[in-house]
Amino acid sequence: MSDDTDQLLRRILTDVLGLKPGQADGFDADTGLFGHLPELDSMAVAGLLTELEDRLDIVIEDDEIDGEMLETFGGLLAFAEAKRTGA
């Protein structure tokens, strides 16, 4: 499950950020996202979360979204994995 979530998350980030194939493979737990990538504004983050919901088959409540979870790839992955386990 965890490997699967990791790969899906990289693919979603590739789609949203328009990355070249393989570019997201270089992301590690500390890679900065929201607040680090200028193209990842609130509209793009909203799109990213919608894609997460659709492709990971989870529901993200607005009050679950905080700066910490969006700040790094590791934070977002931990959130997505916890959501999938709980679902």
Binding site: S42, M43, V45, A46, G47, L49, T50, D62, I65
Partner: peptide, 24 residues
């Protein structure tokens, strides 16, 4: 509804960034 859901979420996120709490 999906279009609005995403646009509302973007607004909530932008408000939160500016230090305001808004609910859907």
């Amino acid at each position: 509804a999906s279009i609005l859901r995403q646009m509302l979420r973007a607004r909530i996120l932008a408000a939160r960034e500016a230090g305001r709490e808004e609910t859907r």
